[in-house]
């Protein structure tokens, strides 16, 4: 994998009317890398992808692929291929015609197109489907055809707009692995838009978390998961519990319980990282919270508890069953605490 950036986005700003959708976004993608744009709906991730494809005209900023500045080029001259959320397969064409379309546009000879389409069908395990109308295919098959259509032209950058969102969970997880294996085998550079954290973590070399038109954090999945740069990223990465804390005497932290002294922070942690204390004592430096079990949900591999605390409540995962109303203590190891200053929370 090369280290010099292949796809470079510099200070890209885009707006729909008066609404600013992208605000000075910078992003570097290396050759052969798969980068996920992760964010909730309306964060600008699809707009960013569509500006790379040329369907959105940015107000300012530049986009480069290799040495080429593609900012002002028409979509057909950019050398990108996009896979659409709806797949956007042409219903009046067969599978083979769909896959061969881009090659036809590039002036390939009939036999060459047929050969390449055959390769794609084999690659995507769709042998024999060439003459079929795309309207007769299942969701998973359509998805493969859409991918094949984009890959057939050997694009410099593959753009994927939530390509799995229309599939069942099981098919989605299966295709996720296939797609990753395929992308690594071909070594294609790809930008993948998704709102699914799990998908982004599993697929991407690097993830850019977008929030309100800005890149909140850009890094490897591990970095984002363990060292979120902001409260927003922490929340998006599954740290769904938030509690205000102040420094404790033992060098750790304790719940603020309304008091906001010097050095008070907001701590985020995952429900899996916390422990429900029975007999076992809390580890040194752990944040200990006392409350009662307010709600219990069985989630298959254990229970999820809503623990009511004096000033707030937290969710905790535990393997054993505890009845509602039981007094309970929650311990969060110090290394599982993601701490952010309170004022940043208000800004986000």
């Amino acid at each position: 994998m090369q280290t010099s950036p292949f796809l470079r986005i510099e200070s890209l700003t885009a707006a729909y009317g008066a609404t600013r959708v992208l605000d000075r976004v910078d992003l570097d993608v290396r050759r052969g890398e798969l980068v996920a744009l992760l964010g909730s709906s309306g964060c600008g991730k699809t707009t960013l992808l569509r500006s790379i494809a040329g369907f959105v005209t940015p107000e300012s900023g530049r986009i480069h692929i290799g040495e080429r500045d593609i900012t002002a080029l028409a979509p057909e001259h950019r050398g990108t291929a996009m896979m659409f959320q709806s797949y956007a397969l042409w219903p009046h064409m067969s599978v083979a015609q769909n896959i061969g379309y881009g090659l036809r546009m590039r002036g390939w000879k009939k036999e060459a197109i047929a050969g390449r389409v055959g390769e794609m069908l084999t690659l995507l395990q769709l042998e024999g489907y060439g003459p079929r109308p795309v309207t007769q295919l299942s969701g998973g098959q359509r998805q493969r055809v859409a991918l094949g259509r984009a890959l057939a032209v050997s694009p410099e950058v593959l753009l994927l707009d939530e390509p799995m969102s229309n599939l069942d969970y099981k098919v989605r997880v299966e295709l996720r692995h296939e797609l990753r294996a395929l992308q690594q085998r071909i070594g294609i550079t790809a930008v993948y838009v998704t709102h699914d954290r799990e998908e982004a973590l599993a697929l991407a070399d690097r993830i850019a978390v977008l929030n309100a038109g800005r890149v909140e954090q850009y890094g490897t999945p591990e970095e984002l998961f363990h060292q979120p740069a902001s409260a927003f990223v922490a929340g998006f990465m599954g740290a769904d519990n938030a509690i205000d804390v102040v420094p404790a005497a033992n060098g750790g932290w304790q719940a603020a319980n309304g008091a906001s002294g010097g050095g008070s922070m907001r701590a985020y942690f995952r429900s899996e990282a916390a422990q429900l204390l029975g007999q076992s004592p809390a580890g040194p430096g752990a944040l200990v919270l006392s409350g009662t079990v307010a709600q219990m949900l069985y989630v298959g591999h254990g229970y999820r508890y809503r623990i009511r605390l004096p000033a707030s409540e937290v969710w905790v995962h535990a393997p054993e069953r505890i009845d509602q109303g039981t007094p309970a203590s929650v311990a969060v190891p110090q290394e599982a605490l993601l701490l952010f200053p309170l004022h940043e929370q208000r800004a986000a």
Partner: peptide, 26 residues
Amino acid sequence: DASLEEASRNLGASPWTCFRTVTLPL
């Protein structure tokens, strides 16, 4: 569907070719 036209442009069709091969037949 407008995305059908976008897909065509994306794969290298000029506006006129896109109209001729995708929009008009549909």
